[in-house]
Simulated scan of single mutants.
Amino acid sequence: MRIGELTKRAGVTPRTIRYYESIGLMPPGEREGNGQHYYSEETLERLRKIDQLKKLGLSLEEIRGVVDLYFIDPSGVQTKQKVLTILRQHLTETDQKMSELQLFRNELQTQIEYFERWFSEREES
């Protein structure tokens, strides 16, 4: 299929496809005699898999490390183990960020209370 059909079916832009090709996330389309690029059904499936992994929160760099496994590991075990490891790392990082945000929130609350007391004391004087 040509790039226009691929973009419609995958729900991405030609710019996205070219970018993914440039960073090695997907191979470039096959060039025909007329200079046009043609893409396979596997390319479409790869784009869909990339989209699924992005929705899970994986970065493009992380996706690059696992997307090929979907096409070389028919059992899917190795791929799912690798994705699970990444998701666990994301959860750990998220928990840490939430903890840091809770501390920051507490500090903000303390400062707000300090200023409110200060204004209250001024009004009473």
Rank of each mutant, 00 (worst) to 15 (best):
K82M: 07
L101C: 12
N34D: 13
Q89L: 10
G35K: 03
L6I: 13
G65R: 05
R122Y: 14
E123C: 11
R48F: 05
Q81D: 12
T94H: 11
E42A: 14
K82G: 07
I63Y: 02
R2T: 14
R2M: 10
G65W: 01
T94A: 15
E41H: 09
F71V: 06
D68C: 09
R88K: 13
Y70M: 02
V83G: 00
G33D: 15
L69F: 00
K54H: 06
L103E: 14
I17A: 07
Q89V: 04
S22N: 12
R48K: 15
R31V: 15
L87R: 01
F119A: 15
L87T: 06
R122F: 15
Y70V: 03
R88G: 08
H90W: 02
E30V: 14
L53F: 08
R88V: 13
L6H: 06
D51V: 04
L53E: 08
S75I: 07
W118R: 12
T16I: 13
L25N: 08
E61W: 00
L101D: 07
R18T: 09
S99M: 11
E21C: 01
I50V: 15
T110W: 00
N34G: 11
G4P: 09
Y39K: 04
L108R: 00
L69T: 04
Q96S: 14
Q81S: 12
Y70Q: 05
L6C: 11
E123S: 15
G24D: 01
R46S: 11
L87C: 12
R31K: 10
M26K: 00
T79R: 06
L69D: 06
Y39A: 08
M98E: 10
V77D: 11
M26S: 09
T92V: 13
R105Y: 06
Q89P: 04
S75L: 07
G33I: 11
E116D: 14
V77F: 01
Q52Y: 12
E45A: 15
I112G: 08
Y114F: 14
E61I: 10
E21N: 02
S120H: 13
F119Y: 15
R9V: 04
N34V: 13
D95S: 11
E100K: 02
M1S: 12
L84V: 05
I112Q: 12
D73A: 08
T79E: 07
P28M: 08
K97Q: 10
Q102K: 13
T16V: 14
I112E: 11
L47E: 08
L47S: 03
G11S: 09
E30P: 03
F119V: 15
K97R: 10
I86D: 03
T43N: 05
P27E: 00
E124I: 13
I72G: 10
Q36H: 15
T7E: 03
P28V: 11
S40V: 05
K80A: 13
R64G: 13
F71N: 05
V83R: 01
K8M: 10
E113C: 11
Q111F: 13
I17V: 15
R18L: 05
T13R: 03
Y70A: 15
